[in-house]
Design a protein around this nucleic acid. Structure first.
Length: 302
DNA sequence: GCTGATTTTCCTGTTT
DNA sequence: TAAACAGGAAAATCAG
């Protein structure tokens, strides 16, 4: 609940600032927003974070709240929600460009969104279009793909991926859509080892961050993944998994492996003991400690 | 195509 | 009893 309160406070603060400093809908030519995104997080496939962090993004904009009737404050709440959902740095969007109410927001074109929010603009546009449609035609399945197809052929590098919704060639081509899970039956020994991973599409991107770096980056960016892992002793590098399965799912998403579990993740973690990337913390469940060969986790190294 | 590093998967047994 | 831990073994993946 603290996170929600904090977010509301930040919205209120931004709201106050803009009320005093901006004029309505002055849209400057925005510089590249990608460069402002934290590189560590920019590659995360984060389409479905709500599934791994229940409660974090569960407050979706419902159909009964049609965007054209939003107040300016609600527009900002929606913006903040979008940033949270897609793990985009709030600094990436000039909020003063969205000092508009719902009616004005809905009248903005695709180009307006792109001008106002740069590379994030299309995401906001698609999200808003979806909301408008779902409110207008409740019960009708809306496909964002239709919007993308009908739009001008723009080339925007997306800072994150939406593998379950958007085509991979428009977003990050390094991640393919998650394949359907076709778990081999435990009773069939032939398929047990030969298909140990359900479906692994060859990836074009190089091997990304290692598991321990992935864990480290979550710890160093708690505002992006609240409640997944927390420091137990920041100085000694001791940390604890709060939502072990959620972290495993997030790791699985990054590796395009929908069958990742904490059991498997923890096995990989235990291999780090030998390499002294991690040290054992005896007697404490879900607790690990960075070892001498782990880099970049100390505050002095940041 | 080969190799090594790094997971991933599956397993059995132990501990909490 | 369930969840987590421990670690062996083998397969998969990917960069070089």
């Amino acid at each position: 609940m603290e996170g929600v309160e904090a977010r509301r406070e930040s919205i209120a603060l931004l709201w106050t600032m803009v009320r005093h400093t901006t004029c309505i809908m002055s849209i400057p030519s925005t510089a590249s927003i990608e460069s402002q995104l934290p590189t560590t997080w920019s590659s995360y496939p984060c389409s479905d974070i709500s599934t791994v962090m229940p409660g974090y993004t569960s407050r979706l904009w419902s159909q009964d709240s049609q965007p054209q009737y939003w107040s300016k404050y609600q527009v900002w709440e929606w913006l903040q929600q979008m940033l949270d959902m897609h793990q985009i740095d709030a600094a990436s969007i000039p909020f003063q460009n969205f000092d508009v109410d719902g009616r004005q927001l809905c009248s903005m074109t695709y180009q307006d969104f792109t001008r106002a929010a740069g590379t994030v603009g299309p995401i906001l546009y698609h999200s808003l279009t979806e909301l408008k449609w779902s409110g207008q035609y409740p019960g009708v399945e809306f496909s964002p793909l239709d919007v993308i197809k009908s739009e001008p052929d723009v080339d925007f590098p997306c800072p994150f991926t939406e593998p379950s919704i958007y085509p991979a060639d428009i977003y990050d081509p390094s991640f393919q859509s998650l394949a359907p899970v076709t778990s081999p039956t435990p009773s069939s020994p032939d398929t047990k080892r030969s298909h140990s991973r359900p479906h692994q599409v060859k990836k074009h991107n190089p091997r990304g961050t290692h598991l321990w770096e992935f864990i480290r980056d979550i710890l160093l960016n708690p505002e992006r993944n609240p409640g997944l892992i927390k420091w137990e002793d920041r100085t000694d590098g001791v940390f604890r998994f709060l939502k072990s399965e959620a972290v495993a799912q997030l790791w699985g998403k990054k590796k395009n492996n929908s069958s990742m579990t904490y059991e498997k993740l923890s096995r990989a973690m235990r291999y780090y003991y030998k390499r002294e990337i991690l040290e054992r913390v005896d007697g404490r469940r879900l607790v690990y400690k960075f070892g001498r060969n782990a880099r970049g986790w100390r505050e002095s190294e940041k």
